[in-house]
């Protein structure tokens, strides 16, 4: 096969952008930055080590998907530190992170970058920044609700729901795959449940962090998540 195609694939996004000549302002004024952002994220990610980043880029190099991201993980860390809240929370980076922990293992300064990404995902949902048609964030939300209500995750219904919400065409495209799984007894559309659903739900609600919820009352994702 032509191995060049993989290479081309890696730069597909960049090449697509090349066709459009776009004039963008490349200056940032201090008043546009959110100075409290870094403390918020550092706290949420349980580590102030974020401040110790030397911008060496090992995380980006170790990341298997960084070449698809609009900002590399290294840039994200710097942007968080300097308060580029909007750019970070609307970036594709956080939703492309597959949580493989390669960056966390390789970081020479011991920064848990994967946990920073989780914190950003949460922040993006809470603040209603997440890309509305992004399957990754929809999946996370649906998964959350399913487990909140049933205690377990049922892969079949989860995927069907996600495709319906994002790209119904994908559902059609993956139908054959689904069928193959179904005849091999590897997927079902039945919803899995634990015995005492109510007790579990109560348990989960008992650790709700009220302060976060109050602060971001307008997040539809949260409303959806907690309205049951």
């Amino acid at each position: 096969m032509d191995k060049k195609s993989v290479f081309a694939e890696s730069f597909a996004l960049d090449n697509a952008a090349k066709d459009i000549v776009e004039i963008r302002r490349r200056i940032k004024y201090e008043s546009e930055l959110d100075k409290s952002f870094r403390d918020k994220i550092a706290k949420s990610a349980h580590g102030e080590k974020l401040y110790g980043c030397i911008q060496c880029g090992t995380c980006s190099a170790a990341c298997p998907v960084s070449h698809y991201m609009d900002y590399t993980p290294r840039k994200i860390i710097q942007m968080v530190r300097e308060g580029f809240k909007e750019e970070v929370l609307t970036s594709s980076t956080v939703w492309l992170c597959a949580s493989c922990y390669a960056c966390t293992v390789e970081c020479p300064k011991g920064i848990k970058i994967t946990d920073v990404m989780y914190a950003l995902k949460r922040e993006s949902i809470l603040g209603n920044y997440y890309p509305k048609k992004s399957p990754a964030s929809i999946l996370a939300n649906n998964f959350f609700n399913q487990v909140l209500n049933n205690g377990r995750n049922s892969e079949g219904p989860l995927l069907v729901k996600m495709y319906l919400k994002t790209n119904p065409f994908m559902l059609f495209k993956n139908m054959a795959l689904g069928f193959k799984l179904w005849i091999r007894g590897r997927i079902s559309l039945k919803t899995e449940r634990i015995k005492d659903k109510k007790a579990l739900k109560k348990l989960l609600q008992s650790v709700e962090d009220k302060s976060i919820y109050k602060a971001e009352v307008n997040s539809p994702a949260l409303k959806e998540a907690s309205a049951v």
Binding site: K121, I125, A140, F143, F144, V147, R152, V207, E208, A221
Partner: peptide, 15 residues
């Protein structure tokens, strides 16, 4: 019950 894996961590860590 569900372990609370990847996707869950992205929404509510404590849960």
């Amino acid at each position: 019950n569900c372990c609370g894996a990847t996707a869950y961590m992205a929404v509510d860590e404590k849960k």
